[in-house]
Design a protein around this nucleic acid. Structure first.
Length: 115
RNA sequence: GCGGAUGGCUGGAUGGCCGCGUGCCCGGAGACGGGUUCGAGGAAAGUCCGGACUCCAAAAAGUGACGGCGCCGGGUAACGCCCGGCCAGUGCAAGCUGAGGGACAGCGCCACAGAGAACAGACCGCCUCGCAUCCGCGGGGUAAGGGUGAAACGGUGAGGUAAGAGCUCACCGCGCCGGUGGCAACAUCGGUGGCACGGCAAGCCCCGCCGGGAGCAAGGCCAAAUAGGGAUCGCGCGGGGGCAACCCCAGGGGCCACUUUUCCCCGAGCAGGUCCGGGUUGGCUGCUGGAGCCUGCGGGCAACCGCAGGCCGAGAUGAAUGGUCAUCGAAGGGCGCAAGCCUGGAACAGAAUCCGGCUUACAGGCCAUCCGCAGAU
């Protein structure tokens, strides 16, 4: 699993599929065949100033990083980029197990074909 | 004991499981794996001052402009910071507060009120003279009293006078001269002048001191990419020596402006400024051992300094320093006579080149010194 670092990757993910949950927003995008990379799954995190001050942003980002580490290796699909966006107060205070199952559910909805 | 002042420290704890970043060691050709070490703050914050460092090639002197600072002495690499002192204001006191140089260099301003606001002035009043039966009117003297104001051309008392006035005297204040103490700011004592000299310099200004600009996205190296391209502006085409590199004289340019000096650069294809077009917007370095921290001794009232010994305490870059669970848990809130029980759950806040400060934010806890009041002795 690799961390997203380029601004262009974040912008591309934002234009693709998105799923809003109480504690975060999940964006996901299947990579094109010509995008060469070693990793199968890539993930990025966004906590803007809307989340709060620096302490609040850091805490939100760490919790998002932790649920991504626990969930994505077995639930995420290879060849996809995921971006997790923090929300004010909710990302930091929602019970951890709930936050984790939210991510499982969000990934399920992203990959279910739309009817 | 109650109330208060100043300075300092601390600002959740322990453990399990799972993770992240750096350095080192081991294995491996390498990718990587394993072990181990360290891993946010007193403000890391605001980016307000002062520096180190880097680039503008380097530096010195004078004048001017602009900006900053401003009682005195000391500390410091430096400061607008700190320490000690002075003066003024304030508080019973410990203490606290102060943009705290100059108002005989010049200019300007002093609202409202008030008669009058800066080489004074006379509304009420007081005294006196004249007129008038009376109410009062007019001339002169005066500035003690009243009134206005932030401020009214010294204050209090006595003498003096028609009433008064530094008109005279005593004390206080003020100015000038001198002595003494202090490095100094200043304090204090004596003499002298009858008062002449209002305030504002966070108004202009004067005086003294300080200051070149930009900032780690500084700067350096590597890789990749391509058209290392084009237009325009200003400047220089000189003389001599030497085979040549180069040197000398003259000319032009060189970090606010001008002048001067050292020094550097330039000369018919080079360097600089501006504009148009194209590419990269990656990696390494700078990057953490320093005006460093701790202990002891010595100097100093102190800030701080010196010496000796010991220690190594983050270095990320979509940015590590954590996530979660358990146990324990301060203040606060509720119940209770009480023991205690229930609730509650940790303030402000997250390094980004590094130091010295200032300012701002901060639940609560602890320590030291001092002051006032009450009580005891």
């Amino acid at each position: 699993m690799e961390i997203l670092r380029k601004r262009a990757d974040f912008l591309a993910a934002a234009r693709a599929r998105r799923q809003a949950m109480p504690g975060f927003v999940l964006q996901a995008r299947p990579r094109r065949a010509d995008e060469t990379t070693d990793a199968d799954i890539r993930v990025g995190y966004t906590c803007s100033k809307k989340v709060g001050n620096a302490v609040a942003r850091n805490r939100a980002k760490r919790r998002l990083r932790e649920i991504a580490r626990l969930v994505l290796p077995h639930s995420g699909l290879a060849g996809w980029d995921y971006v997790l966006i923090g929300r004010r107060d909710e990302t930091a205070t929602r019970p951890f197990e709930t936050l984790r199952s939210d991510l499982e559910a969000a990934i399920g909805r992203i990959h279910r074909p739309r009817s």
